[in-house]
Nucleic acid binder design. Structure first.
Lengths: 139, 139
DNA sequence: CAATAGTTTAGAATATTTCTAAACAACGTT
DNA sequence: AACGTTGTTTAGAAATATTCTAAACTATTG
């Protein structure tokens, strides 16, 4: 590990973000760990635990910047809390309504053969499929 | 309109909810107006405008009770704000990211021919498809 | 019409996210 | 390596949305 930060520095520069101390630290936490889902609060806690001093406001700023830059994706499955996903490839999600967990579904495991035409004057941003499941038998 | 409330009274009783003044008034606003999408705040404003005195807490309670009873559906497309839909039939949504508007998509206009198998020990609650569009050309 | 069980309420509390403006840090130029 | 510019970070306040609390109220049953 002679140059442990060179990769994240390059990645940040590629998307036009200054490689600041906080952004590098957060990027390293996020992208060294493989695909996963997390909330802003969770990342903030994880950073604190790893000895990285960063404010929650910066965590939010950074997550939004990363999302806009396309190196992170926001997943909306629950009102009142945002989740993010380090997997930015084309895929979908299971959402466990009881435990609030997310599980990736590979794009090839869902096939949509028919989609409606878009409303006039709009551009397609994304088609999100969320399969909501419960952990417990229903009453 | 000799008995304008008899229908909502019956409907509430059918789903095991007492037909109280507030629930009847809100149900009437919601179900006499045809399919539409709204937030808790919007319904509260609409009720106030119609001379119905009801607290925001009751609006939230009522929306959750109606949702649990299956006569209303919650749509999650945006973190930080919940939307509800008086259309409880099988269908999907367009979401206009700029204007935060929703538009129904009939179930027959989306065909999914392949779905992954559910994770062990889970029950399917719902498959939600959200087609996110922007109103404006992207930069 | 009294008892009781369920409902409504205002306001406080909670949770999450965004804002503000001052301090700070990165980076190209000297 | 210091400078200036511009972009970034920060703590704390503010904004937003939702849920909680416990007291008052109301629908329903007997």
């Amino acid at each position: 590990m002679q140059r442990p930060y060179s990769q994240v520095i390059d990645r940040l520069k590629q998307v036009g973000l200054r490689p600041t101390r906080q952004r590098m630290a957060l990027a390293k936490l996020l992208f060294d760990a493989g695909d996963h889902h997390f909330s802003a609060e969770q990342l903030h806690n994880q950073a604190s635990g790893a000895g990285i001093r960063v404010s929650l406001a910066t965590v939010y700023n950074t997550l939004h910047q990363f999302t806009k830059a396309g190196i992170l994706r926001e997943i909306i499955v629950s009102s009142g809390r945002s989740y993010f996903d380090t997997n930015t490839s084309d895929h979908h999600h299971f959402f466990f309504e009881d435990s609030h967990r997310l599980l990736d579904i590979d794009a090839k495991d869902i096939t949509i053969t028919k989609l409606p035409k878009l409303p006039e004057g709009t551009l397609l941003e994304r088609v999100d499929v969320v399969i909501r499941v419960s952990d417990n038998p229903k009453s």
